[in-house]
Amino acid sequence: MHSNSGADRIDLVLLDVGGPIYDDATYRDALLRAATELAAEDGRTVDEAEFQRVYDERRQAQSGSLRTAIAGRFLTPEDRQRLSDRAERYWEYPPSALYTDVLPTLRQLAGRYKIAIVANQRAVVVDALRRDGVADHIDIWAVSEVVGAEKPDPRIFQYALREAGVEPKNAVHVGNRLDTDVRGAHRVGLRTVWVVRGEAPPEPTPEQLAEPDVVVYSLAELPAALDRLQGE
C-alpha cells in the first residue's frame, strides 16, 4: 500500500459496487453471453479466448469503452447499444459473487464513517445489496440509473456529497477503475483508494499505480488505508 495524500479528516467513504463489492466476472460473463447470442443471430461466432483477449486489453488500458470494443470486434460498431441492452438481461449478482472481505470491512467502518454507494448500475442492484446484507451499512445511494449520471460524470459524485452533507476534501472514493473511479473522483476533489481486482488492469504499470492516493489489493486493507490517509 502506498499513499500520496494529506491528512484531512474523512467523514464519507464512497464505494463502487462492481469490483470492490461484487466480482466483475458477473458482468464479463453477461457480456460474453450477449455477444455470443447477437453474433449467432447474424450467423457468426464468438471465440471465448479472443473475447478474453479484448476484455483484458481494455482492462489494461483503463480507458475506452469495453462494450464498444467488444461490439467492434465481434459484431459491428453500431451494435454497441444492442450489446449493452442484451447484456443487462443477464447482469445480476448472485450471492456467490460477493467478496468475502466486504461485510467484515463494512462492520469495521460502520460508526466511523458515512458510507455511500456510487456505482454505474441499474437500480435493481440495490436488491442484491439488501439480500447480501451490504445495504444495512449504507447511508447514501448514488446509483447511476436513479441519479441520471454515470461515473466519471462529476454529477454522480456531487449527488452523493450533497446527500451526505460532506465537502469533497473530507470524502474518499473507493473503486477499481482508473478511468471512471479514480480520475472521475479526483476531478471533483475527492481522494481515492484503488482496489486492484476485477476490471483493474491484469498488470498495473508504475504510472497507473501512481494515479490514486492509495492502492490496495483487497477490501480488508481499506480501514488501514483510510487511517493512513488521515495521518493516523
Rank of each mutant, 00 (worst) to 15 (best):
D42P: 00
D8C: 10
T180G: 00
I70K: 03
W141Y: 12
I156A: 11
I117E: 05
P212K: 11
G198S: 09
A128Q: 14
D213H: 15
A35C: 07
R112N: 10
L190S: 10
E145T: 11
D24G: 08
A142R: 04
V102I: 08
L219R: 02
P168R: 11
T205I: 10
R130Q: 13
A220F: 04
V172E: 08
P77Y: 12
A128R: 15
H186I: 01
Y22I: 04
D153V: 04
S144T: 10
Q108D: 10
L209F: 06
D101E: 08
S5G: 15
A61H: 04
R82L: 13
F157V: 05
L106Q: 05
A224Q: 13
L83E: 09
V124Q: 15
L178F: 06
L106A: 06
Q81H: 09
L129W: 11
V172A: 12
A110W: 01
P168F: 10
P152E: 11
D136E: 14
D79V: 00
I115M: 08
E48I: 00
G43K: 01
L31C: 08
I21P: 06
E78P: 00
A49K: 03
D47N: 07
Y99F: 14
R112C: 03
V147M: 07
A25S: 14
D23K: 02
N170F: 02
R162A: 15
A40K: 05
I117W: 00
S5L: 06
Y99E: 07
G189K: 08
G148H: 12
R28N: 04
S63L: 05
Y113S: 10
A200E: 08
Y90K: 11
V134K: 07
R44E: 06
V13T: 09
A49V: 02
D11S: 14
G175H: 03
V174W: 00
F74A: 02
